[in-house]
Write a protein that binds this DNA or RNA. Structure first.
Length: 554
DNA sequence: AGTCAAACTTAGGATCTCTGAG
DNA sequence: CTCAGAGATCCTAAGTTTGACT
């Protein structure tokens, strides 16, 4: 059986909630067991060689591996690590090793680096073998690629932002921790020798193949299918269909929340303002989080007093709200937005008698908000607004920015700019690439060189014309033309890269933009789809590439 | 109405691989 | 042919949503 490339429209539909009828797989891949340090590699404490027990040694290696990373200098990280490391130590070790600052992991670190180097050169074939054995499953008569078929290896937890649990030990997962999900009638995966599974389950109302509970946050981890699988692609299609449905009723919903802004009920007013933000700014819903368990980040419903500042007047606009908070992944959201008076007044009201640390929307949570939304339209939740806003913005920007008579390079710049507008709306940021300035300078140097070459070619062409009193050899002409083309391409590339310095386009492209908009645009502009989607993106969006007509409108 | 677990999507950075300029 | 760096892929953390239970 070949991996599926397309979906099931023409296939039978299952009863409600049933995700598959037959599921067979080989179970997850387990990372290799720990290999003790070679005899010539030592750990030193307070300048003295110390032979560690196996358990303590393994944890020491986790720390040594990360020594290049600035994580290992952070106080919280070091404290957590040291605490958990000591738990793995023997009595003797514990009474000796009392100060992380006196620990020298230098040799272990060096060994690890050289090991990585040799591993790089070796494992290509091995990787393919592993992929072949564990990377696929059989789901309803089709071979499907599994997304993450590897059990996560042990190591030190790296949270994002100021995570209170950074540095904690993430323990090794054994088969005894893993639940397998597959068909009763299937060839049930065989656990590694000498081991057994925690449980074998046959639940066809869920999509995961295996799961285990992770020890740092206590959350469940799943082995699931790749994005190009039927299960995922269909869900994706549904997501965009729901967002398109919102398009037809968003006007009514807006009318409704504008009315609610004047409600006598405080919770309705708060709901209305939150909805206004979610709609206008594409903020995330903002669930409550347990304090001390994760980094302090917020979304719309969990905004606190200190996250907004109200300005009656700012930069020539009236009623401006200034947002400054850390969102998902501790990415900063900073924005100054003029808002309507009614919302502004409500915000002032919500802030009355509150201190920094207090919730802005104290009578609202995501549950209430989503319940309300789903009563307005089936399937409507807060995140649908993000999808809707993103896709609508792309469509509108593409219309505004692209011109059929442009060159392909210019069209692609326009496409990226439209994509960028969405990424900015959704606040998808990235750290500027390490070598950004350097690579920008390199590109500029190339452009300059090419410019020089071009002017030289031009003079030559003139010269040739004069001498031969003809139109100049077609060869020189062609050369000049090519030169111009390349120059344009590079200049466009430079612009694109500069504008993209701190913006990540991938997330919106992959998760928020209805691929049919892009496919239709490609058809209209006579741009090949593979200019905007790479191989795996084309696989993921195969359904859209296959079904979309030129006249598709989101 | 609130709490919690489960299941799933979304996210940025790390790492690997490929490519095209020199 | 080599190798930097761009682009693709991997990794797994961090969100959202739902539904059971209290």
């Amino acid at each position: 059986l070949e991996p599926r490339t397309f979906l099931l429209w023409e296939e039978e539909k299952y009863e409600d909630g049933v995700k598959w009828k037959f599921l067979e797989h080989n179970g997850p891949y387990f990372p290799p067991e720990y290999e003790p340090l070679p005899d010539n590699v030592h750990f030193y404490y307070d300048g003295k060689k110390v032979k560690l027990s196996l358990a303590a040694e393994e944890v020491a290696l986790f720390f040594a591996q990360m020594l290049d990373h600035e994580y290992t200098t952070k106080e919280v990280f070091r404290e957590n690590f040291f605490k958990y490391w000591r738990k793995e130590m023997t009595h003797e070790e514990r009474s000796l090793i009392k100060n992380l600052d006196k620990c020298d992991f230098g040799e272990i670190h060096a060994m690890h680096k050289s090991k990585v180097e040799t591993r790089k050169n070796m494992t290509k074939d091995e990787k393919l073998k592993i992929l072949d054995e564990y990377g696929y499953c059989l789901l309803d008569h089709h071979k499907e690629r599994i997304g993450n078929f590897k059990i996560e290896p042990p190591g030190l937890f790296r949270g994002r932002g100021e995570h209170p649990k950074q540095g904690m030990l993430k323990k090794r997962i054994q088969p005894e921790d893993v639940i397998i999900n597959c068909s009763k009638e299937s060839r049930v995966p065989v656990p590694p020798v000498g081991h057994h599974w925690k449980e074998i389950r046959h639940d066809n109302t869920v999509t995961w193949l295996a799961s285990w509970t992770e020890n740092v946050q206590g959350s469940i981890k799943y082995i699931m299918l790749n994005a190009n699988s039927k299960l995922k692609a269909e869900k994706d299609w549904e997501k965009y269909e729901v967002a398109r449905k919102l398009k037809s009723c968003v006007d009514d919903i807006r009318k409704q929340y504008l009315l609610d802004l004047k409600s006598k009920e405080m919770s309705l007013r708060q709901r209305a303002v939150a909805l206004y933000f979610i709609d206008k700014l594409a903020l995330r819903a903002g669930n409550e989080k347990e304090e001390g368990e994760t980094a302090d980040t917020v979304g719309c419903c969990s905004l606190r007093v200190e996250h907004i500042t109200l300005h009656e007047q700012l930069d020539g606009s009236e009623c401006v709200v200034e947002f400054d908070f850390l969102g998902k992944d501790s990415i900063r959201y900073y924005n100054k937005v003029p808002i309507i008076k009614k919302v502004f007044k409500n915000l002032k009201l919500f802030l009355e008698n509150k201190q920094p640390g207090d919730d802005l929307f104290d009578r609202l949570n995501t549950n209430m908000l989503n319940k309300h939304l789903s009563s307005l339209m089936p399937g409507l939740t807060a995140k649908v607004f993000r999808t809707y806003n993103a896709s609508t913005t792309l469509q509108q920007q593409l219309k505004e920015l692209t011109n059929k008579s442009n060159s392909v390079a210019e069209k692609l710049l326009s496409y990226n700019r439209a994509n960028r507008a969405v990424a900015i709306l959704c606040n998808h940021q990235r750290a500027p690439p390490k070598s950004f300035d350097q690579s920008m300078a390199n590109l500029q140097a190339k452009i300059d060189a090419r410019k020089e070459q071009l002017s030289l070619a031009k003079t030559e062409l003139k010269q040739a014309k004069k001498e031969a009193k003809t139109k100049g050899s077609s060869d020189t002409k062609l050369q000049t033309y090519r030169c111009k083309e390349q120059l344009l391409k590079m200049e466009v590339q430079a612009t694109d890269r500069e504008e993209n310095k701190q913006i990540a386009l991938g997330t919106s492209k992959l998760n928020y933009l209805d691929p049919r908009i892009s496919v239709a645009w490609c058809k209209n502009m006579e741009v090949q789809v593979d200019k905007i989607y790479n191989k795996s993106q084309r696989d993921k969006f195969a359904w859209a590439i296959d079904m979309t007509e030129v006249d598709f409108v989101f």
